[in-house]
């Protein structure tokens, strides 16, 4: 099948002190082309491990991942990634950052220029091509990061807390941009976040993960991302149905954190 298929994936880290940590335990799911998945969970639930496995940076201890009918074994330009702030190449200009992928794909300079211009105008940075990365604000840097990833036209876009370091206002705007890009490109996206609101507003599917061992405990299919394409995201966040799911998930994560704290106190006693 096309799309992403994760079958019975487990990841065990062997710590130097001889202990084994189960970062992921028997994870299985399918992602259809064009879906936007958000993954939510407290720190240590294995969501970053999951993303690194999907990108091909890590090989799982067991299980198998296929994307578009091919097994995922190493990084591939077909699977792009957007990182938290600080992963841009600060020695290159904005244009050169966005053009990096096409250049590595061996595209011709005039093609690269067209690609760069296209994506910079889509993310709203058409006039900023010549700027240096360190001259841009955090939000603008993440726009460059999105454009850099999209310039190679990956079929799957992995996002590792892309808005995590932004202030609340910029973050809301960027959520709108991610929805716009999702609609316009029809790409499959998997995004991890630790913001409940962000997970709900962006994900047409939402996974809740729990730690020790890292596992999937609940899955939602939600209408808010679709609504966000038409409506202001701030309006959606006020809707009763949005608030209901948000509170349900917050309670779930709250209980998880309580349990972790309790366990640690138990260990210390």
């Amino acid at each position: 099948m096309s799309g992403l298929s994760v079958r019975d994936v487990s990841m065990i880290y062997n710590l130097p002190n001889g202990e084994d940590v189960e970062a992921l335990k028997h994870l299985s799911f399918e992602l259809e082309p064009g879906e936007l998945l958000t993954v939510l969970g407290p720190s240590g639930c294995g969501k970053t491990t999951l993303l690194n496995i999907l990108a091909g940076f890590l090989a799982p201890s067991s299980g198998k991942i296929d994307f578009d009918g091919k097994e995922v074994l190493s990084p591939d330009p077909q699977r792009g990634m957007v990182f938290q702030q600080g992963a841009l190449f600060e020695w290159l200009s904005v244009e050169q950052n966005v053009g990096f992928g096409p250049k590595m794909m061996g595209r011709k300079p005039n093609e690269i220029k067209a690609i760069v211009d296209k994506w910079l105008s889509i993310v709203g940075l058409a006039d900023f091509g010549k700027k240096a990365i360190y001259e841009l604000s955090g939000g603008m840097q993440q726009r460059v990061a999105l454009a850099r990833c999209l310039a190679n036209e990956p079929d799957l876009i992995l996002m590792d807390e892309p808005l995590g370091a932004l202030d609340a206002l910029t973050r809301e705007k960027m959520q709108g941009l991610i929805l716009k890009l999702w609609k316009e490109t029809g790409k499959t996206i998997a995004l991890i976040t630790h913001s409940v609101e962000e997970a709900l507003i962006l994900g047409n599917r939402v996974f809740i993960m729990a730690p020790r061992p890292g596992r999937l405990i609940k899955e939602y299919s939600l209408p808010f991302a679709e609504q966000g394409l038409e409506k202001n995201t701030r309006e959606i966040k006020k809707q009763p149905d949005f608030i209901e799911v948000r509170e349900e998930i917050l309670t779930m994560i709250w209980d998880m954190e309580e349990e972790i704290m309790g366990r640690q106190e138990g260990n210390n006693a």
Binding site: F100, P154, D160
Partner: peptide, 27 residues
């Protein structure tokens, strides 16, 4: 060199030589 920069370069189709000269060296 931040590992996220190296990871980013790999997902953008850079090979080892390109990562050395275009990411690690300028860094």
């Amino acid at each position: 060199t931040k590992i996220s920069k190296i990871h980013a370069a790999y997902t953008l189709n850079a090979n080892k030589k390109q990562i050395l000269f275009r990411v690690i060296l300028p860094n």
